[in-house]
Simulated scan of single mutants.
Amino acid sequence: MRLNLLPPSPLEYFTSLVQSDAELPLLEAVVSLAQDEYPDLDLEHSLSVVDKMQSRLRKRNAQNGSVLERIHQLNQFFYGELGFALNTNDYYDPDNSYLHHVLETRRGIPISIGVLWLELARSIGLDVYGVSFPGHFMLKVLLAQGQVILDPLTGKSFSSQELTHQLQAQIPRLSLYNEETMPLGLFLQSASPREILTRMLRNLKEIFRVQQDGARQLAVMERLVILLPKDWIERRDRGLAYEAVGRTQEAMVDFQSYLDFSREALDATEIAQKLQALKNQA
């Protein structure tokens, strides 16, 4: 029996990282998203850079103050000394989602910067979570008396009124609510590592769709299907991407999976017709 001594492919490695919700290593999984774009990426280097940042922060006794004091110290270090901020020059640059690049340039988007902030915050004992707020990823810190919602781009807290206005701008139908009756809590739930990865990948999926870059979009879809094996919409979308690049057999498998579990979908007839057309060509 021969042993397989070859290193895992990027997709195999990603698959191994996201098998279990309980043990999903968010930072490592986020760093690995860049492997399709950067095959020679040194993941260990990026993880080491974050580890050194955590060590520098802890040496300042940042873990010994109150929660608010620790947040203040972290923000001074993260935004002031390290200089992390929004990439205002090119918000839709895919590199803004690739953590090794964000670590190098200190520029990114709310979710990539937010992931780094969460890693540093947890290293000094803060009880923190990401929040998949519509239109803008946010940070949540649990306090003895409640919680505070922060902007990952600045570390500043949002008032409930500010959050209400942001939510109404993203979801017009919620303009019927006022600040007292707005169901804010529904949109401030803690995001799991899998949900954070999903949001990052869907950001990239949309960027590559707009850029009409089918090959790179398909690479992202491969990861989404691995991450969300029972999300049949993602399976359908990957099938459409396979069809577009002429990978007929893979497209047929995905279309069949979609139909098996989404018979009542509005586009089920359309996908069934596509499937039959591909079968006729085979």
Rank of each mutant, 00 (worst) to 15 (best):
V67T: 12
V67R: 01
R70Q: 13
I71K: 04
Q76N: 13
G65E: 06
L68E: 15
Y79R: 05
Y91N: 06
Y91Q: 07
L74Q: 01
N96K: 00
H72F: 13
R60H: 09
L82Y: 08
Y79F: 15
L74Y: 03
R70G: 03
E69I: 02
Y79Q: 04
N64Q: 15
E69S: 11
F84V: 02
N64F: 13
E81T: 08
L68D: 15
T88P: 11
G80R: 00
D93K: 02
G83H: 08
L82E: 12
E69M: 06
L86Q: 14
L68S: 15
Q63N: 14
D90A: 12
Y92D: 10
F78P: 07
N96W: 01
F84R: 01
D95W: 00
T88L: 12
F78I: 01
Y91F: 14
D95H: 08
N87I: 08
S66G: 15
N87E: 09
R70L: 04
R60D: 10
P94Y: 00
E69Y: 05
N89C: 11
N61Q: 14
N64A: 11
L86Y: 14
N96A: 01
E69A: 11
Q76E: 12
E69G: 10
I71A: 06
T88Q: 15
N89D: 15
G80E: 05
G80H: 03
Y92C: 05
G83Q: 06
N87G: 07
N75I: 01
Q73V: 07
S66Y: 05
G83A: 03
L74W: 02
N75V: 01
L68K: 14
R60A: 12
